[in-house]
C-alpha cells in the first residue's frame, strides 16, 4: 500500500488554477514496485558485499597495486574470446537493429522540427519539450529552439524553449542570444526562465550582466530581489 504519511511543501502561489492542480496532484497513482525489485536488490547487495570482502582480501595479499593491469588484461582476453564465440553470428542482426534505430531517430527529429514550426502553440510547446533531448548535438534544432525562445508569440513557448536551451548557455551563439533576450524582454515569465537559467548555469560575465539588470531595476521587482539575494548568499 502507498505510504499515507506524505510530506508536502506548502503551496505558495496565489493562482487559483495552480492551487487546484497542486491539490489534485495528491491523487496521482503511486504504483508499487514488483517483487523482482526486492529480490534483485538483495542479490546485488550480496554481490556487492562479496566484492567488498574480495577487495579487502586483495589488499591483505598485497595485490592492490596490480589489480588495474591484471583486471584489464583479463578483460581483454575475455572480450577477445567472447567476440570469437559470439561476434560473427550476431553482427547482421546488430547492423539491422542499428539501422532501424537510426531511422527512428531521424523520424523523431523530423517530427520535432515539424512541431516546432506548427501553428498551434500547444503543438509548438510539445515540440520544445521533445527537442530538449536532441538539442545538445543538433545545430538545426538548436537554431529552431532559439527562434522559439526569441520570437514565439506565446510566452509559455518562449519560456520552455529557454529551458530547453539551458545546457547550451555556455556556447557563445546561444549564450549571446539569450542574454540579449534577457536585456530586452518585458515578459515576467520569460524573465523568470532566463534568470533561473543564468543563476543555475551562467558564467561570470552572464552573472555580472544579470546583477547589473537587477540593480538598474530592468527586471520584474520580485526577480530583481531574488537575483540580489541569490548572489549575496553565494558571496557569503
Amino acid at each position: 500500500m502507498p505510504d499515507k504519511n506524505t510530506p508536502s511543501l506548502p503551496f505558495e502561489s496565489g493562482d487559483a488554477n495552480e492551487q487546484k492542480l497542486w491539490a489534485a496532484l495528491a491523487g496521482l497513482p503511486r504504483t508499487e514496485p514488483s517483487t523482482r525489485l526486492r529480490q534483485g536488490f538483495y542479490d546485488q547487495l550480496e554481490h556487492a558485499g562479496a566484492e567488498h570482502w574480495s577487495g579487502r582480501l586483495r589488499k591483505w595479499l598485497g595485490l592492490g597495486s596490480n589489480s588495474g593491469w591484471l583486471t584489464a588484461a583479463a578483460c581483454v582476453l575475455l572480450g577477445f574470446g567472447t567476440a570469437q564465440l559470439l561476434g560473427e553470428p550476431r553482427a547482421p542482426e546488430s547492423d539491422r537493429l542499428a539501422a532501424l534505430e537510426q531511422s527512428v531517430a531521424t523520424l523523431n527529429r523530423e517530427l520535432v522540427l515539424d512541431r516546432l514550426r506548427a501553428d498551434a502553440p500547444g503543438t509548438r510547446l510539445q515540440g520544445v519539450y521533445q527537442a530538449s533531448g536532441f538539442a545538445q548535438d543538433d545545430a538545426e534544432i538548436v537554431q529552431a529552439l532559439l527562434q522559439r525562445a526569441t520570437q514565439d508569440r506565446a510566452a509559455s513557448v518562449r519560456s520552455a524553449a529557454i529551458d530547453a536551451l539551458g545546457p547550451q548557455l555556455g556556447s557563445a551563439a546561444v549564450g549571446n542570444e539569450l542574454m540579449d533576450l534577457l536585456e530586452h524582454t518585458d515578459s515576467p515569465i520569460v524573465q523568470l526562465a532566463l534568470v533561473d537559467l543564468v543563476l543555475r548555469n551562467g558564467n561570470r560575465q552572464q552573472l555580472a550582466l544579470l546583477v547589473k539588470l537587477a540593480d538598474e531595476q530592468r527586471l520584474h521587482p520580485d526577480l530583481a530581489t531574488h537575483v540580489q539575494n541569490s548572489i549575496r548568499s553565494d558571496a557569503i
Binding site: 511543501l9 505558495e12 502561489s13 493562482d15 488554477n17 495552480e18 492542480l21 497542486w22 510547446l125 509559455s156 519560456s159 520552455a160 515569465i189 523568470l192 526562465a193 534568470v195 533561473d196 543563476l199 543555475r200 531574488h226 539575494n229 541569490s230 548568499s233
Partner: peptide, 17 residues
Amino acid sequence: GTARVRMHRAMQQLNLA
C-alpha cells in the same frame, strides 16, 4: 531559494501544459 523559484515555474508550466 532556487528550489522555490523552480517550483513556481514548474507549476506555471504544468498549468499551461
